[in-house]
Amino acid sequence: MMNGSIAAVRDAIDTLDLDNVCSLVQKCLDEGLTPEEIIEHGIGQGLDIVGKKFETGEYFLADLIMAGEVVKEAMPILKRRMNPGLASKRGTVILATVAGDIHEIGKNIVGMILSANGYEVVDLGVDVSASSIIDTARSTGARLIGLSALLSTMVHSIREVVEASRAAGLREQVRIVIGGACTSQALCAEMGADAYGETAIDALRIFNGFSQAA
């Protein structure tokens, strides 16, 4: 059975309770629970519930952003006590909005969800060149890349990243996931990417799949 204090953290995420999440997380720590337990069973499960509510239409994008804000509020307390190994447990994800596109809200939501679920996120920002993304993959050893694109005129930038990974000899090692308003499953195939996620929750599921398969 789930510890009551962890359940309260989970519920705080679910109910987007920005005001109380820190004290609830602190209570868990004071009771001797580890940050890893709190993240996995409290924050992670809370985000699962939020994700399901978003997918079923009960929650809206604003609620997803708020859930990210609640998690952001709680994370510093946890990070201070966290085993440095946890962040790399699931892997490192490089996130970027592709060259020529500066829309970032969707990417940021994905980043928050991934961080809260134990990924180390390297957010390169917006309008990021293919070479910069691949250089980062090489220097960090990250094998998961998330690309966001909203402008249909910039979808060719996705192909540039795929080709740059091939030119760098990394294509077999990296998994490239795309998302954003102008992307689709068909575009994913056309551009030679590995997966398409329609929502931030989709993205988490996809990265979890790749992470477990690695």
Binding site: L16, L18, A62, I65, M66, E69, I105, N108
Partner: peptide, 11 residues
């Protein structure tokens, strides 16, 4: 900013 606006709407 969208995040600020979302926080305001919620709180």
């Amino acid at each position: 900013g969208a995040t600020c606006l979302v926080r305001l709407a919620a709180r």
